[in-house]
Amino acid sequence: ATNIVGKVKWYNSTKNAGFIEQDNGGKDVFVHKSAVDAAGLHSLEEGQDVIFDLEEKQGKAYAVNLRIK
């Protein structure tokens, strides 16, 4: 899926990971530091509006192509 709108639920820069809550009510999506880095960002803030694509690896959904809304 592409161009999904959501809000950062939480992001821990020590653990280099967090979750994004989908505005469409879907399951929360894992976001890794690699996606944050690829977006040219240093970190994510709780409640921040984002747009992202979903990629599945080994049955788990990940946020990729992250951008700030």
Score class of each variant (00 low, 15 high):
Ala17Leu: 14
Ala1His: 13
Ile4His: 07
Phe52Gln: 00
Glu21Trp: 10
Ser43Glu: 10
Gln48Ser: 08
Ile51Cys: 08
Ser43Gly: 13
Asn24Tyr: 08
Asn65Ile: 02
Asn16Ile: 03
Asp53Phe: 03
Asp37Met: 14
Ile68Lys: 06
Asp53Ile: 03
Lys27Trp: 08
Gln48Cys: 09
Asp28Trp: 14
Leu66Cys: 02
Ala63Cys: 04
Phe19Val: 12
Ile4Gln: 10
Gly26His: 09
Lys7Asp: 01
Tyr11Ile: 07
Lys57Ile: 11
Phe30Gly: 03
Ala17Trp: 15
Trp10Gly: 03
Glu45Trp: 15
Ala63Ser: 02
Ile20His: 00
Val36Glu: 00
Ala1Lys: 15
Leu66Ser: 00
His42Arg: 12
Tyr11Ala: 03
Gln58Arg: 13
Val64Asp: 02
Val64Thr: 10
Ala17Pro: 01
Glu21Val: 13
Phe30Asp: 02
Lys15His: 11
Thr14Arg: 14
Ile68Asp: 05
Phe19Tyr: 12
Leu41Trp: 11
Asn24Asp: 10
Glu56Cys: 14
Asn24Gln: 09
Leu41Phe: 10
Gly25Pro: 06
Ala35Gly: 03
Gly26Ile: 06
Gly40Glu: 05
Val5Glu: 11
Ser13Val: 13
Gly25Arg: 07
Phe30Ala: 05
Lys69Ile: 15
Phe30Ile: 07
Gly47Ala: 05
Val64Tyr: 06
Arg67Ser: 05
Lys27Arg: 12
Lys33Gly: 11
Gly25Gln: 07
His32Ile: 06
Arg67Leu: 04
Thr2Leu: 12
Phe52Val: 02
Asn16Gly: 15
Val36Lys: 02
Tyr62Arg: 06
Glu56Gly: 06
Val8Asp: 01
Glu46Cys: 12
Ala17Asp: 03
Thr2Lys: 14
Lys9Val: 05
Gly18Asn: 01
Lys7Gln: 05
Gly26Asn: 09
Lys33Val: 08
Phe30Glu: 06
Ala35Leu: 03
Lys57Gln: 10
Phe52Leu: 02
Asp28Asn: 09
Ile68His: 05
Asp49Thr: 15
Glu21Asn: 08
Lys7Gly: 01
Phe52Lys: 00
Tyr11Cys: 05
Glu46Tyr: 12
Ala38Asp: 08
Lys33Glu: 04
Lys33Cys: 08
Val31Ile: 09
Leu66Trp: 00
Glu45Arg: 14
His32Met: 10
Ser34Phe: 10
Gln48Thr: 10
Ala38Asn: 08
Lys27Asp: 10
Glu45Asn: 11
Gly40Asp: 05
Lys15Ser: 09
Ile4Gly: 04
Lys27Ala: 12
Phe52Asp: 00
Val8Ala: 01
Glu46Pro: 15
Leu44Ser: 01
Asn12Thr: 05
Asp23Leu: 15
Thr14Gly: 11
Val31Cys: 02
Ala39Leu: 07
Glu21Ser: 15
Ala38Gly: 06
Asn65Asp: 02
Asn16Glu: 11
Asn24Met: 10
Lys33Tyr: 08
Thr14Trp: 13
Ala1Ile: 12
Ala35Thr: 09
Gly25Lys: 08
Val50Lys: 00
Ala63Pro: 01
Val8Trp: 07
Ser34Ala: 09
Gln48Tyr: 06
Ser13Asn: 11
Lys15Asp: 07
Asp28Gly: 09
His32Val: 06
Leu44Lys: 00
Glu56Thr: 13
Glu56Pro: 03
Gly40Asn: 09
Tyr11Thr: 06
Val50Trp: 01
Lys60Cys: 12
Glu21Met: 14
Ile20Gly: 00
Phe52Ala: 02
Lys33Pro: 06
Thr14Leu: 13
Asn16Tyr: 09
Ile68Val: 13
Gln48Ala: 09
Ser34Thr: 11
Val31Arg: 00
Glu55Pro: 01
Phe52Glu: 00
Asn24Leu: 09
Gly59Ala: 04
Asp28Cys: 11
Ala63Val: 06
Tyr11Ser: 03
Gln58Leu: 12
Lys33Arg: 11
Val8Pro: 01
Phe30Ser: 03
Asn24Val: 08
Ala39Glu: 02
Lys7Glu: 01
Leu66Ile: 13
Gln22Arg: 15
Lys33Met: 06
Asp49Glu: 15
Ser43Tyr: 12
His32Asn: 10
Lys15Leu: 15
Lys27Ser: 10
Asp28Val: 10
Asp28Pro: 10
His32Tyr: 07
Asn3Met: 06
Asn12Met: 08
Ser13Lys: 14
Gln22Gly: 07
Ser43Ala: 11
Phe19Ala: 07
Asn3Asp: 11
Val50Ile: 13
Lys60Gly: 06
Ser34Leu: 10
Val31Met: 04
Leu66Thr: 01
Asn12Trp: 08
Val8Tyr: 03
Ile68Gly: 04
Leu44Ala: 01
Asp53Thr: 04
Gly18Val: 03
Ala38Pro: 02
Tyr62Gly: 03
Glu21Asp: 05
Ile4Met: 11
His32Cys: 11
Gln22Asn: 07
Gln58Val: 08
Gln22Pro: 15
Glu46Ile: 15
Lys9Pro: 00
Val31Glu: 00
Gly25Phe: 07
Ala38Trp: 06
Gly25Glu: 06
Gly25Thr: 07
